[in-house]
């Protein structure tokens, strides 16, 4: 940044604009550890009452938070692993190999990516019930991963497109098989893409609500988003303190991941355009 460019007016403007957002986050935290009388914004007293869910055993009404978190974690990680491993090979094939119907696949992926998930939900429900994967995590994972797949393949294709052809030619000339070339010479160069896509797919699985809500509602396979929604679905028993505390608990991993991987995530937008 050049020194003659004054940055403080800009900072001030951004500060004012983002202040309401900051306030929301601050109150998300404050509300979970205090008691505030209705109509006021000044908290009355400190309490950890709302965080009691962390230590609750599973009851008839709701499952234990830890088993739900584990389910969410499994869904997110499996989504990430499936997406990354299939995109790694599919993206390469579409970028480099002479696949039949290549342009058809590419165009089809764009359309699939834009397809609204909700419209498919009934048929997916029926299919899962027929094959016996209704109310299982595997069912949700398969559906979730396949819906995100076009995006993943497309992103990885973009990364592969930036690797120079001559590197592959050189590898082949050096005596390596096409597979070795892919694994030892090409993969290391699209590594940033994998990291970004992996994190992205994890977060996407973590935040998924509609699929697990419809396809795996029972308490032993519930994920955090469904658990959270369940808290306010009850007509007679609202506990906004608890809702906010669980909400905060739910978003902490997202914020942490973002803090660790923000540079890497930006690659997803750079990958397709360079070279």
């Amino acid at each position: 940044m050049s020194s003659h460019l004054k940055t403080w007016p800009l900072s001030l403007f951004l500060g004012i604009v983002s202040f309401p957002l900051v306030l929301m986050y601050v109150y998300l935290v404050i509300d979970t550890i205090t008691v505030t009388p209705p109509g006021s914004i000044i908290p009355e007293k400190f309490t950890l009452e709302d965080w009691r869910f962390l230590f609750e055993e599973a009851t008839g009404r709701r499952p234990s938070i830890w088993s739900v978190t584990l389910n969410s974690f499994i869904l997110a990680s499996a989504n990430s692993i499936v997406i990354v491993s299939i995109s790694a090979t599919a993206g390469y094939a579409l970028s480099r190999l002479n696949v039949p119907f290549r342009s058809f696949f590419l165009a089809g992926m764009m359309v699939l990516h834009a397809f609204p998930t909700v419209t498919l939900i009934v048929s997916i429900f029926l299919i899962l019930q027929m094959v016996g994967l209704y109310n299982t995590l595997i069912g949700v994972i398969l559906v979730k991963a396949s819906l995100l797949m076009p995006f993943g393949v497309w992103i990885m294709k973009g990364f592969y497109d930036t690797v120079p052809w001559e590197i592959e030619m050189a590898g082949v000339q050096d005596g390596a098989s096409r597979f070795t070339v892919w694994r030892r010479l090409v993969l290391p160069q699209v590594q940033p893409g994998f990291l970004a896509l992996g994190v992205f797919a994890f977060l996407d699985g973590w935040s998924e609500f509609i699929l697990p809500q419809v396809l795996a509602p029972s308490s032993d396979v519930q994920v955090l988003s469904v658990y959270l929604a369940g808290l306010i679905a009850d007509e007679f028993y609202f506990d906004f303190g608890l809702f906010k505390a669980v909400g905060l608990f739910y978003s902490v991993p997202v914020i942490l991941l973002y803090l660790f991987f923000q540079d890497k995530l930006m690659n997803i937008y750079g990958g397709g355009s360079k070279g």
């Binding site: 001559e166 590197i167 082949v172 050096d174 005596g175 390596a176 290391p188 160069q189």
Partner: peptide, 30 residues
């Protein structure tokens, strides 16, 4: 025969060095 089975060394116009390997790894790759 495919390129792997011909004994040919090629120097490409862009040099096509493997960017993630050191010089000695590059030379040792074949």
């Amino acid at each position: 025969l495919p390129p792997q089975r011909r004994s040919v060394g090629v120097v490409f116009q862009s040099f096509a060095l493997y960017p993630h390997m050191s010089v000695s790894e590059n030379i040792g790759f074949p």
